[in-house]
């Protein structure tokens, strides 16, 4: 990456100047100290999970568990105790299951709509786009209560989505609403030459066939971005599942963490262990798709 860096504020000539050099290394030092404060709390949490409670909240503060010199004596079993013993496994699977369905809901309607708006002759395209993109103006928190009432009694059909499967349908179906995803798909498809699509049409391919066999192979990047953001969104979501899920056995991982922390009889080191375990999937996803995620944020301006 270093080689492709365009010149920026400080040129190579500046850089050789002693006083600039001094400033550069001062900034470097400050940034390093700052980086310590972003990494340290996470490491503190990781190590504190291995301590007894009185050591987590004790004076003087310790970083490594005691005895610091003998790591093999630390309470490593706590991670297994929490994951297997406190059934965190179950909540992992709950959340994975939910994430898969939410992902389907996030991908299918938006990519179909994006394709139609980009490559097909749709009725009233201007009006439709206005109606879709208008919803970007209001985050869902602003109509939280009416949405909450809607999923409990869908208009016309009068179905209560909260009644079955612990309320999961009431989380999955609204995940299909994302003007932002439609916008991403549409603008990505806009860059694919229409001639490709027309050639396929002349060859007698169906529209679904074109979407799957011509467009999709060229659009892995946008599908990846939408998928990663969708998974992270479901995994990290708190407010909406808190309102909807009505069966403790079907809690998502974040709801479980919230309750685990509230239970007075659970030692705080176990809570910290649970926090660390629950952060593994997002961290893993980031490690695998670091470049994609960073590009996605820079490209879309959306943070998850």
């Amino acid at each position: 990456m270093k080689d492709e860096r365009a010149r920026s504020l400080i040129s190579d000539i500046d850089y050789r100047n002693p006083s600039t050099h001094l400033i550069y290394w001062s900034v470097f030092t400050v940034l390093s100290l700052g980086a310590v404060t972003t990494i340290l709390p996470l490491l503190w949490g990781f190590f504190s999970a291995l301590k007894p409670s009185y050591e987590i909240f004790g004076f003087p503060p310790t970083f490594l568990p005691r005895p610091a010199a003998r790591p093999w004596q630390w309470n490593w079993g706590v991670y297994d105790e929490v994951f297997a013993g406190s059934q965190f496994m179950r909540y992992f699977w709950n959340t994975f299951l939910l994430a898969v369905f939410c992902w389907i809901a996030a991908i299918v309607p938006s990519s179909l709509a994006g394709y139609a708006l980009s490559k097909m002759k749709t009725p009233m395209p201007k009006l439709l786009m206005l109606l879709f993109f208008m919803t970007l103006m209001v985050p869902f928190q602003a109509y939280l209560v009416p949405l909450f009432l809607t999923v409990r009694d869908l208009p016309l059909v009068h179905i209560n989505l909260v009644q079955h499967f612990a309320g999961y349908p009431a989380i999955i179906l609204p995940a299909g609403v994302s003007a932002f995803n439609i916008f991403l798909f549409k603008s990505f498809f806009d860059d694919i030459p229409t001639s490709l699509v027309e050639a396929a049409r002349i060859d007698g391919a169906s529209e679904i066939g074109i979407l799957l066999r011509v467009i999709l192979p060229l659009s892995y990047a946008v599908f990846a971005v939408v998928s990663i953001f969708s998974f992270m969104g479901t995994w990290n979501d708190f407010l909406w599942p808190l309102l909807i899920i009505n069966d403790n056995n079907w809690n998502t991982i974040m709801l479980r963490l919230y309750q685990y922390d509230l239970q007075g009889d659970v030692a705080k080191n176990k809570v910290l262990a649970a926090l660390m375990i629950s952060s593994v999937p997002p961290l893993l996803l980031f490690a695998l798709f670091q470049r994609k995620i960073m590009q996605g944020i820079a490209l879309t301006g959306v943070k998850f």
Partner: peptide
């Protein structure tokens, strides 16, 4: 094309436009 748009329109109608009106 309307068929391609239908799923998105149904989702938006139920979980966005209708609650906003509500």
């Amino acid at each position: 094309a309307a068929g391609f748009l239908a799923p998105a329109i149904v989702f938006f109608a139920l979980f966005s436009w209708w609650p906003i009106i509500q």
